[in-house]
Design a protein around this nucleic acid. Structure first.
Lengths: 234, 234
DNA sequence: GGATATTTCTGCACCGGGTGTATGTTTGCA
DNA sequence: TGCAAACATACACCCGGTGCAGAAATATCC
């Protein structure tokens, strides 16, 4: 949960790997950068979890991290990113799953298997992690419109990445790739959100697990077999 | 395009239909409200189209509409709503289509037919309207992140509405309804966005029409028959 | 071990969106 | 005609975010 694999927003020289002085490993500058980045992020999360996202002005976060407001915004482009940068790594996860699937596997089957395995491992991306930190994070995000909006950006970006993966590895026409990606991401997201919502308010991961699996299998079956036989009604 | 069927944001008494004095039609108060609402909206659109959304501060819109900034925000909760309120009516359109479908029709078939008809009529909701105003509006929205984000909110709300319609009229279990709704809305949206994007930059509606129909049929076929037979690759 | 170029941090002033409040001004209604 | 409710306004304010100029730190060269 402290997956600060960020390497973020510096605009200076295009330094491929930011090595240190005379190339003897990460230099002092870089180490300080990382510490500052982490300090700001940690202060932010702690304050937000305690008082609520909207209630804490960025100025107070900067103060807690012993950094100027100006510096804070040099590390994180927006207030929302103080929270969401921790999730950013996962935005291409579905696409990567499709790319890494064993030969002869259908893309959808790969995503399905990955999701089900994630449920078993209580991977945060499935919405089924009930580590207290993660749970409070789910809740905070779900309760904060601007954070939800931020998540939607990830969704869009996951969609693009998946479409590209489908085009390249499944030799799918562009339109097919786009529509399929839209469907898959939408459903994946709905599943995770549903789980997260339930865990955010009390339900335990173990208690939810069976239902989560059922729902996931159901949803992926719909994706695979189509909506053609929905009841007609009337 | 001036579809101000808004009836918007007043917080006072819960007046069902806001009739006028002694019920002789809309009173002076209500008429003034509507005029002010329209004046603000029109001034906003005009200024935004001319100078760009980000470039025009709300204060200038208020000034142009001869209204105080405070009043502007009494009519429109956010700057984005100055643009998006014109589209808000359509957020339940898919759900309404499903509800109004002839007995014995599959929900998906109804949505499909509705969309194809929309294409033929160059309905703005399909992204295939090339009235110059609409075209510039598409472009402005697509070029403005905060407006795109605002559209995502509509998408979410369209999804909820559709899920409910499916549950109620197709007697679908809640989970099925949610997943199906997510898929349908995602694809519907992708289709419209694709059209709008092309028209925003030059392509004419007539030139795009055939392709739009092909894409739509293809996408709805995917929805109906499932993603099970995507190429496996490898 | 400096002297220097470069990056980073900081304070400060500023912009723009949005809100609370107190005080008019209009309108509805009796 | 007079009163209550709704509405508009000005003003001061908060907060997120940016531009800028200068100070502090770090890397580099000698």
């Amino acid at each position: 949960m402290n997956g600060d694999t960020d390497g973020s927003a510096r605009d200076g020289a295009a330094n491929g790997a930011a090595r240190g002085p005379a190339d003897g490993g990460p230099g002092l500058r870089e180490r300080k950068r990382r510490r500052t980045h982490a300090a700001i992020s940690d202060a932010a999360i702690a304050l937000f979890l305690e008082h609520g996202f909207q209630q804490v002005p960025v100025a107070r976060v900067a103060e807690a991290a012993e950094v100027s407001k100006r510096t804070l915004f040099a590390y994180f482009p927006t207030k929302e990113d103080l929270v969401l940068h921790r999730i950013a790594d996962h935005e291409t996860e579905i696409a990567r799953t499709v790319r890494a699937r064993p030969p002869g596997t259908a893309p959808l089957a790969a995503v399905r298997a990955h999701f089900l395995r994630g449920l078993g491992e209580r991977d945060a991306i499935t919405g089924l992690s009930d580590h207290p930190q993660v749970r409070r994070l789910y809740r905070m995000i779900l309760d904060t419109p601007s954070l939800v909006a931020g998540m939607e950006r990830f969704k869009a970006s996951a969609e693009r990445a998946l479409a590209e993966a489908l085009r390249e590895t499944a030799d799918t026409p562009e339109t097919t790739a786009r529509f399929a990606a839209a469907q898959i991401v939408a459903v994946h997201w709905a599943l995770a959100q549903d789980n997260a919502e339930r865990l955010a308010y009390g339900e335990t991961a173990d208690a939810r697990y069976a239902g989560a699996v059922t729902d996931a299998e159901h949803a992926f079956a719909l994706l695979a077999n189509g909506l053609g036989d929905l009841p007609r009604g009337g």
